[in-house]
């Protein structure tokens, strides 16, 4: 298991992806799972950035492998609760004229991962995604 903390900024994504790449390389994670995990981590990380802009705390990312499962957990410190597993659904059947950018990220996270959990204690939000490799 490895952990690191990242500055609360979109510009930190390069460092986040560098960190995940080193983990994927060490664990031999297949390309498809890498893309899915990076997608989910970006969506959750940027969600933390967008909705807690005044917060100066860094965001912690922990990666772990247990057999054929990869678990990635983002911890956001000193925040109000926001359970992303309860985010509103997106109607993907609407025509382009009725669609608005936004909301798709969490919709896709729920679609792509094998498990998504949210926990809130001591003003800390912990979001864990699990991706099975088989």
């Amino acid at each position: 298991m490895i952990s690191a903390r990242f500055h609360r900024s979109f510009d930190a994504l390069d460092q986040v992806f560098g960190f995940t790449r080193r983990f994927y390389d060490a664990e031999g994670v297949p390309d498809e799972a890498r893309l899915v995990l990076d997608f989910c981590l970006e969506e959750i990380f940027t969600n933390c950035v967008k909705y807690n802009r005044g917060n100066l705390q860094e965001i912690e990312l922990t990666l772990d492998r247990a057999g054929d499962r990869i678990q990635a957990r983002l911890t956001d410190f000193d925040v109000e609760p926001y359970d992303i597993t309860q985010a509103p659904a997106v109607d993907i059947s609407l025509p382009a004229s009725a669609r608005e950018p936004g909301g798709l990220g969490l919709h896709l996270v729920r679609r792509l991962v094998d498990d998504l959990t949210y926990d809130y204690t001591n003003r800390q939000s912990r979001i864990t995604v699990t991706k099975n490799l088989r």
């Binding site: 893309l35 990076d38 997608f39 969506e43 940027t46 382009a96 608005e100 798709l104 990220g105 896709l108």
Partner: peptide, 20 residues
């Protein structure tokens, strides 16, 4: 293109709405 996130999807959607 190796990777696209919802931010990239938003770029495509905004452009498509303008063009339509």
């Amino acid at each position: 293109l190796e990777y696209i996130s919802s931010a990239g999807l938003g770029v495509l959607l905004r452009t498509q709405k303008r063009l339509l």
